[in-house]
Every structure is written in C-alpha cells, then in structure tokens.
C-alpha cells in the first residue's frame, strides 16, 4: 500500500464517497492539488476531526458530537411526542420541512430478517427503555414505506401499544404536484385506502 504513489492512494481513497468513480476521483484529486491546496488541508483536518468526534446520541442514536444531541437536550421541545425514523438524514429532513418540535428516535436501519437484522440490531432494547420512562403520549412512525419499513413500524407500534401509547403513522400517497395517471398502482391504492374527510 505505502509504496504506491501518493497520488494514486488519494484517488483510491476518494472513491469511498458515494457516486464517485475512478474518473471523478481523478478530477477531485487534481483539483485539490493544483487549484486549492488550502481547501484540501481544511478538508483533511475537518474530516479527521469529524471522524474522531462525531458519535451517536445516547438517547436517540442520531449523529452527535456530545453524548446527548441538541434535539434531546433542548428544553423547548415537546417531551410527549416521539418520532421514530430510520436514519439521521431523515431527522434533518423532518426538521427542515415540518413544524414538528417533539423528540426523535433513530433506528439506524430497519428490520430485515433476510439480512440478519432483527429487533436487537436496530436498538429496540434502548427504545423500549425510552418507552418505559413514560410521559410519551404520541408515538409517530416515520419509517420508509418499504416492506421492511412496514414491518419495523408494525413491530414498534406493537411495543408502544403494549404500553398504551397512542401510535400514529405519517401519511403515504400521491406526491404534491403529481398526476394520478402517472402514480404507480401501489402508491395509488395506498392513497385511496388512506383517504380522509374533507
């Protein structure tokens, strides 16, 4: 490894990023070396720091520098609502798009028995502990509308129902600005069964 030229090692290392193939990696490497060495230094420094210091929040399992993340630490947020999502990126998406100001719980995946991922692997023991602490009045399921997400939602829903907590699920259906004709059958039938009073 070490006797290979540094340039080659750099290009190889860049390929660990999603969407970056040999050609893009080469372009990035040359750009940093020829046009923006300062930017490259900052990048390597910040990258190193981030890899060292960012871990998971011990309460909700989202990415966080501190032991408890901002969402969990904030006193302004509503303790009675808990939203369950699959990834930290979804926490950010919900934060940016909605007025939701309750707490979160990040599973870091979904139940997928065929990949060997069961309840324990997605932190449901920690989640159960969270439910046991009490004072949650509404559990919002925001797992993805895939079969695995569906199974996960059901499993978590049962856990909450066993503790008599109200469980809601985000709506799935026709995207805004979409046209019914082009929406796929599965989504449309889901939207149709999930219709509500108007």
């Amino acid at each position: 490894m070490s006797d290979r030229p540094l340039l080659e090692q750099l290009m190889d290392a860049l390929r660990c990023l999603p969407g970056v193939g040999a050609k893009s990696a080469q372009r990035m490497a040359f750009y940093l070396l020829e046009r923006d060495r300062e930017g490259g230094r900052v990048l390597s420094h910040v990258l190193d720091e981030a890899m060292e210091r960012i871990g998971h929040c011990s309460r909700c399992r989202t990415l966080s520098e501190a032991d408890i993340c901002n969402y969990c630490a904030s006193s302004k947020r509503d303790d009675s609502q808990l939203c369950v999502v699959e990834t930290p990126a979804e926490v950010v998406a919900i934060e940016q798009a909605t007025d939701y100001r309750g707490r979160y719980f990040v599973l870091g995946g979904h139940l997928s028995p065929l990949d060997g991922i069961g309840p324990r692997e997605i932190g449901l023991d920690l989640f159960d502990q969270r439910l046991r602490e009490g004072n949650i009045s509404e559990l919002i399921l925001a797992t993805n509308p895939t079969v695995e997400g569906e199974a996960t939602a059901h499993y978590i829903g049962e856990m909450a129902r066993a503790r008599a907590i109200r469980v809601t699920r985000i709506a799935h259906g026709v995207p805004l600005g979409g046209e019914l004709e082009y929406v796929d059958g599965g989504t449309l039938s889901h939207a149709f069964t999930g219709r509500r009073d108007f």
Binding site: P113, L114, V147, E150, A151, H154, G185, G186, S189, H190
Partner: peptide, 17 residues
C-alpha cells in the same frame, strides 16, 4: 393487483422468504 401484507402477515411473509 398489488398486494399489501401488513403486520403479522408481513412477518409471516418474511419467514417464508
């Protein structure tokens, strides 16, 4: 038609798969 398995039926489907 597209089929939707839900809840325990879904678990059962995973089991068969």
């Amino acid at each position: 038609k597209m089929r939707h398995l839900e809840g325990k039926s879904l678990y059962c489907g995973f089991y068969m798969n």
